[in-house]
Design a protein around this nucleic acid. Sequence first.
DNA 1: GCGACAG
DNA 2: ATCTTGTCGC
Length: 230
Amino acid sequence: MKPHSLHPWNVTPTEAREIQERFRNHVLQKNVARLRHIRHVAGVDVSIKNNRVIAAIVVLDFSSLEIIASSIHRQPVRFPYVPGLLTFRECPALLPAYEKIRVEPDLVLVDGQGIAHPRRFGLAAHLGVLLGKPTIGCAKSRLIGVYEEPHEEAGCYTDLFDGEELIGAVLRTRTNVKPLFISVGHKIELPTALDLVLNCCRGYRLPEPTRLAHQSAGGLLPSPRARYET
DNA sequence: GCGACAG
DNA sequence: ATCTTGTCGC
């Protein structure tokens, strides 16, 4: 369950972009077999506090959307926030948090873009490739791409394009609330990603996995090690 | 040069 | 992301 570390994290912005260009073709936009029997869905998110990165991962039972495991990992910030290079700021803390999880997730929802990224390698895509697992990018705002505003009813969506290329969708996860920017992370197709995200929504804008991971990273959920960790 | 820009 | 309380609307 230990993710492959195929490249260094202690890099310059220029090197970071080179790494993204080198790995962008590793993304698989195809549904894999395990998506047909999803039992565990994970949500990952990160918060920054006192110059420290707080990475949180929450694993939910796919059918009940109840928490069955979670973990947190904190470490110093080692990379600045640069649009397009978010992975190099958050991933170094997410990987250790992932290693602590005892339950193997079948799918991972990430708070950030998948391939809806300048080099088609946003955080969700990068994490998916490193973990070799299906991931979906669920961003709260746009990084790149043009789109038409989707209708106000929950479930409605429009395509997100970068020129002629379809890179994602703008999905209304809740009626009359700002839409989410969904894109393929890894080992999944966009239509499937949209369907699964909607199935993870419980009346809030953010799907449960990501929503709970966000609360966990912000220190709003009961301490993982006190309740769910072994 | 100017504006845009995941979290 | 973070700094921060109450408040308007479905």
